[in-house]
């Protein structure tokens, strides 16, 4: 399956892209997707326990099973206001 990844703030800087697509095995979780990205971009490793996730613009969890066409956003700690 194919998913879209959205990255924000420092995570975007680390990866060098705001949006990318990834091919994943069926039954892949958001955690698997994150681990795949962290293997490619070592700077992400520090965020392992400091990242929130949204799937299709709803907050979700790392154990979420993804589906073809999902938009998965990885969110560093927020600083609005």
């Amino acid at each position: 399956m194919r998913v879209t990844v959205r990255l924000f703030a420092r995570l975007r800087d680390i990866v060098g892209a705001a949006r990318l697509t990834r091919e994943l095995p069926e039954d892949a979780t958001a955690r698997l997707l994150w681990n795949t990205l962290a293997e490619e971009h070592a700077g992400l490793v520090a965020y392992r326990d400091a990242v929130s996730i949204a799937v299709n613009a709803e907050y979700s969890k790392m154990n979420r099973r993804l589906a073809d066409g999902d938009e998965v956003a990885f969110l560093p700690p927020v600083s609005g206001g």
């Binding site: 703030a9 420092r10 949204a54 927020v78 600083s79 609005g80």
Partner: peptide
């Protein structure tokens, strides 16, 4: 409301 914005709104400042 402003406390919750700071906790959970997906917004970042540089």
């Amino acid at each position: 409301a402003i406390e919750r914005v700071k906790q959970i709104a997906p917004i970042w400042k540089k």
